[in-house]
């Protein structure tokens, strides 16, 4: 029933709306892989204003550090993992 499954290739929306956002700027527009599904959680972008709204599916997304930072100085094995709500994810073919 969820929109994404572990192993799916995704891109973080390259979008810059105003307001309270929990998707860090350094990950926007970056491509990663769904590592796991955590369940549906209250949407912080709505809860931050003491409003109610539908719960959002939350996923752990794994990014290669070298994909996030083109000049990354580390091991090519290094990854960044972040928890991203469904409405920030775009499926890649």
């Amino acid at each position: 029933m969820t929109q994404f499954a572990p192993g799916d290739l995704v891109r973080i929306r390259d979008d810059y709306p105003p307001g309270h956002i929990r998707t860090p700027i350094y990950l926007r527009g970056k491509e990663g892989v769904v590592e796991r599904y955590f369940g549906a959680f209250g949407n912080p972008e709505v809860l931050a204003y003491n409003l109610k709204g539908p719960k959002k599916d939350l996923y752990k997304i794994r990014f290669r550090a070298a994909d996030v930072w083109p000049d990354y100085q580390g091991s090519p094995k290094d990854v960044i993992e972040a928890d991203i709500y469904e409405h920030w994810l775009e499926k890649l073919a």
Partner: peptide, 27 residues
């Protein structure tokens, strides 16, 4: 991250994959 870990006295081999978990949500 590897430079930061060095500031804590931690040296990781390049054979070890470093996973940085950014707690951006409810986890």
């Amino acid at each position: 991250p590897r430079a930061v870990l060095q500031e804590f006295g931690t040296e990781l081999s390049d054979d070890v994959a470093l996973h940085v978990h950014d707690s951006t949500a409810d986890i």
